[in-house]
Structures are given as structure tokens and as C-alpha cells.
């Protein structure tokens, strides 16, 4: 739908983030809050369990000012525990810390999960918020979705490496790393981080992801975009695919025959759609 230009609004896809979103949904408790980024579609879907409700926001359905008018960049659907969503890199870090601070002042239960990415950790507010949260023993768990890209450039193309484990060790913040393609692994990491945060120890989880550039097809104006898999081609895997790619993992889990049949089904449905 996005490639067909069916939306007036910009939508940031998150192919490859699905396991983290589902793990988040399984980990969050009723009293917890979630602060997202512009790449929030999978999380809104996992928390709302309603694709049509999410689509209503993308399509700006409903009267002006009604619930289904949030578009995508700041989508924070009601009754999902999603307190806030920001399209400004790092902005939601401080807001999430504020929510956690309010819970502390008012003696309310619940921790705050904050989504961010390998681009946003370059922002000063990432550093500031970790210091603030550690200083005041706030219940926050920061999930760093490391998909290697910020806009069209890889980490190697734009900056020096950052070892988050050392950053967190220096600040006294707990740190975990997980592979974003494996639901049990991410869920275990989020659960442990939630436990730390509940005790007033801020936590960081770095999740390795393989995202849009592998699965969304060609991007206009981006000549280097590796168009390795597109729906109309089926779920084709190329030579030398990263073993942590979610589709490679799926192929391994299903076996080649089941995966081939799934691919045919996807192509068929795509053609009908």
C-alpha cells in the first residue's frame, strides 16, 4: 500500500522489528507505559491487536479531531499502554524519564519502556537521560533497536562505533544484548530489564535488527538500496544472507518446502491485493 502511494502520510515500515514488538507486548504489564519512535507501526499493531484500527489512523479516517487521526509519525493508539510517540530522535527518552519520575513521586507502580535506535544514541539527550534516570533511580528500560541504518547511511558510513555495554557500565546502568530475530531471546532480555527497572535500576537492551533496506524493495532516489526481496518476487533469499535475518531464521524454522509454499502464498495474496 505504501509503495502504491495509497497514503497521504509518511509511514516508516519496520520489517524485521516484529519479534521485538511481540516480545514487548508479552512483557509489558498493565501499569507499564511505552514511549515509541516514528518507526512504531509494529508496536501499535502488537499492542492494539487490530490492523484495521491502525490503518484507520494511516488513512486519516474519521472526523477531524477524532481518535483515528493520528497518522503515523506520532502514532500512540489509545488503550495500548503507549503513552507517547516521537518522531524526533531521542526526544522520547526524556519524556519517558518524566513519566517514570511521576510514578516515583506519586508512588505509582509500573515501569516505562522507551524505544530508540542506533541513530538516536548519537543524540546528547540519550546520554543526559541515562544520567538523569540513574541519578534518580527511575524505572526505565531503554530498547535500542540497532538496525545499522540512520536514514540511508550505515553506522560505518556516518560515525565511529559505540560500545553500549561500556557506556552503560560507566553509568551504572544494566545492559543486555539480544538478537531481534528471535522472540524468546528478546522476551527474556526485556523481562530481565523490566525486573531491573522495577527496582529503580535503569536498563538498556540493544537489539540487533535487520530492517527495511532488506525487505521493503527499492527506495526511489537510493541507488545503493539492495533490492534483494520484494513481495512481487516472493520471499526470495539471496546468496550470503545474514544468518540473523528474520526471513533466513524463518526458513530455517519452517524448512525449505514450507517456506517455499509460504512464499507462493504471499505472492498470490499480493497479486490479489
Amino acid at each position: 500500500m505504501l509503495k502504491a502511494g495509497q497514503f497521504k502520510i509518511p509511514v516508516h515500515l519496520a520489517f524485521g522489528h516484529e519479534a521485538v514488538a511481540v516480545a514487548m507486548d508479552l512483557t509489558m504489564q498493565a501499569e507499564d507505559a511505552l514511549c515509541l519512535t516514528h518507526r512504531n507501526g509494529a508496536y501499535n499493531l502488537a499492542r492494539s491487536k487490530s490492523f484495521d484500527s491502525e490503518l484507520a489512523h494511516y488513512e486519516l479516517r474519521g472526523r477531524s479531531g477524532s481518535a483515528a487521526q493520528m497518522a503515523s509519525m506520532n502514532l500512540a493508539m489509545e488503550n495500548t499502554g503507549i503513552a507517547y510517540t516521537s518522531s524526533i530522535l531521542g526526544n522520547n527518552m526524556a519524556v519517558g524519564a518524566g513519566i517514570a519520575m511521576n510514578r516515583k513521586v506519586c508512588h505509582r507502580e509500573g515501569i516505562v519502556f522507551i524505544l530508540t535506535g542506533d541513530g538516536a544514541i548519537e543524540e546528547g539527550v540519550f546520554w543526559e537521560t541515562l544520567i538523569f534516570a540513574r541519578s534518580h533511580e527511575l524505572g526505565i528500560a531503554v530498547v535500542v533497536e540497532n538496525n545499522n541504518f540512520s536514514l540511508g547511511s550505515t553506522i560505518a558510513q556516518r560515525r565511529s562505533p559505540i560500545d553500549l555495554s561500556l557506556v552503560c557500565a560507566g553509568l551504572g546502568v544494566s545492559f543486555r544484548r539480544a538478537t531481534g530475530a528471535e522472540l524468546p531471546e528478546v522476551k527474556a532480555a526485556l523481562g530481565a530489564a523490566r525486573s531491573d527497572a522495577s527496582r529503580g535500576c535503569p536498563a538498556v537492551i540493544e537489539v540487533q535488527l535487520h530492517t527495511f533496506n532488506q525487505h521493503a524493495g527499492p527506495t526511489p532516489g537510493w541507488a545503493e538500496d539492495p533490492r534483494r526481496i520484494a513481495l512481487h518476487d516472493g520471499l526470495l533469499l539471496g546468496q550470503g544472507d545474514d544468518p540473523n535475518d528474520p526471513l533466513v531464521r524463518l526458513q530455517q524454522a519452517l524448512g525449505e518446502e514450507h517456506f517455499r509454499r509460504l512464499a507462493e502464498q504471499v505472492v498470490q495474496e499480493n497479486a490479489v491485493g
Binding site: 526524556a94 513519566i99 506519586c106 544520567i131
Partner: peptide, 27 residues
């Protein structure tokens, strides 16, 4: 009420204040 000393991170301070407001608190 709480009177809380904080460090040097004004960008975060404004976000924290608005986060408290978003959560229904007073800051």
C-alpha cells in the same frame, strides 16, 4: 511534594517536565 536537585541536562529537564505532565502529574 518533592524539592529535587538535578544535574546539568536542560534538554532532558524540559522533556521530564512534559513527561510528568503527560502522565497527569505536576512539575
Amino acid at each position: 511534594g518533592v524539592i529535587q536537585n538535578v544535574g546539568n541536562c536542560e534538554l532532558t529537564h524540559l522533556g521530564v517536565g512534559l513527561g510528568i505532565m503527560l502522565d497527569g502529574g505536576q512539575a
